[in-house]
Simulated scan of single mutants.
Amino acid sequence: MTISPASPLTLEQMRADIARMVHEQPEDIALDDNLMDLGLDSMRVLNLLVRWNESGIGLDFSEIAEHTTLQGWWSVVEQRLAQMQA
């Protein structure tokens, strides 16, 4: 599913995209799971960032790479969304 520029990125969308990438169910991805332990590698993360940046959020790999959990990634997204609305 492609996010249109008018659609903000949501935690649920991120969870679903990560789950698809690691062949899991979204409900099996907890906020504090180490995503690298679930099978994400740098190439998969880059693919996710390309998809998520279609929403216009402009995430950078280095921002995301500082975190290994969905909660950490969501915190980065929340900060970016707040900047976009300011």
Rank of each mutant, 00 (worst) to 15 (best):
Q71S: 12
V77E: 03
E66N: 03
A19M: 06
E54P: 00
I29T: 12
Q25K: 11
I18V: 15
D28N: 06
A86T: 05
T68I: 01
D37Y: 11
W73E: 05
M84D: 14
D37I: 03
I3A: 03
D28H: 04
T69G: 02
D60A: 08
V22N: 11
Q85R: 15
A82M: 14
I29C: 12
V77C: 03
A16Q: 11
L31R: 13
L9W: 08
G72K: 04
H23C: 02
D37K: 09
L81E: 12
I57P: 05
E78G: 03
T69H: 01
E66D: 12
L9K: 08
G58T: 06
F61A: 14
Q13P: 00
D17F: 00
A65D: 11
N47K: 10
I29G: 10
E24A: 10
P8R: 04
A16D: 14
R15W: 04
Q25N: 06
H67V: 00
A16P: 04
L11P: 00
T10Q: 13
R80N: 07
L49P: 04
L38S: 05
D33G: 06
D28Y: 01
L40N: 11
A19R: 05
S7W: 04
I29V: 15
D41P: 13
A30S: 11
S4I: 01
A6Q: 15
R51G: 10
A86C: 04
L40H: 09
N47P: 02
Q13D: 15
A82F: 06
I3Y: 05
L35W: 13
G39W: 10
R20C: 01
W74C: 00
E54A: 02
A30Q: 14
T69L: 00
D32H: 12
L40W: 08
E66S: 02
W73L: 03
Q85K: 15
N53Q: 06
V77S: 02
H23R: 12
M43Q: 14
A6I: 07
S7E: 15
I57D: 13
L40K: 12
I57E: 15
Q83P: 03
R15S: 00
L81I: 08
M84T: 07
D33E: 11
S75K: 12
L40E: 13
L49V: 06
M36T: 10
V45T: 13
Q85G: 06
W73P: 01
I57Q: 10
L35R: 13
I18A: 05
E24Q: 14
D37H: 14
